[in-house]
Amino acid sequence: MLTQDKLLDMYYRMVLIRAFEDRVHELFTQGKIPGFVHLYAGEEAVAVGVISHLRRGDYITSTHRGHGHCIAMGVDVKGMMAELYGKKTGTCRGKGGSMHIADFEVGMLGANGIVGAGGPLAVGAALAAKYKGGGGVVVCFAGDGAQNQGAVLESLNAAAIWKLPIVFVVEDNQYAISLRSLSSTKLQPRVSTARSVAERAVAFGIPSVTVDGMDVLAVYEAAKAAVERGRAGEGPSLLDCKTYRYYGHFEGDPMVYRSVEEIDEWRKKDPIKLFEEKLLKSGIATQAILSDLRRKAALEVDEAVKFAEGSPYPEPSEAYTDVFTDPYY
């Protein structure tokens, strides 16, 4: 049973992700954040539902859409915001930006600019976890689009034959940029109405399940079994989470490939609202508690923006450090 504390912690992480992403959207529009930014708003239930099972020593690999994974893993949002601004105090000292936030301290092995690249990295981290013993697991987050990348398919097979402690989490947000996930696989669904890559996992010998990715408790339940399987040394699993991104593929996307009506339909199934309803109905929380948490999240993001804006840029000479462990570049 989930305790009240745990449930409220999950809620807080979800609203913190949302507050962070909504703010980044504004800041990007105002021209304060440069580069390519991919927002996670709408998909909060997936990151939080899965990551709520992780403990110190576990790892995740992430994607270009990594802010939600970071926040769910407990990466400091001040450092994240400063990273987005390209400041010296950023998580990666301003060298990485939105697409490359990593924090190995908390087990976040990095957002990634290359679609599918997290698959092999997760296999390696899981190989290390298995070798070291201790029941560590690795979660590999990847989009519906990434499922068609050779690196991901090879990773599924490698994880299966080596019986690795990995949970492959498919974030099927219906699109890979403009390509509908429906038209990037021929497979018919077992559970949902959408076609599903969960079928593929079965062909690799990996148990899989299709999950309502807008329902954090459903994701949590599905992930529980998968994580336990990994910790027990029984091998990989795959969760195919059906979800939706609210903003464009990247900030600035004209979104010619989908309608406003479609976005509105999905917003009606908002994962935060859905969770709120459940928390209120079960008496776990009151409106007052939830609005306090939302206010706290907004404040945390305000602080992060202040911190980022008040931080210095890196020294130009820092462009030449960190290529190797020694000063040579």
Binding site: P34, G35, E83, G86, K87, G90, C92, G94, K95, G96, G97, H100, Y313, P314, P316, E318, A319, V323
Partner: peptide
């Protein structure tokens, strides 16, 4: 590697 921060 090409750094993110505009300054770098």
């Amino acid at each position: 590697p090409i750094p993110f921060s505009p300054v770098l």
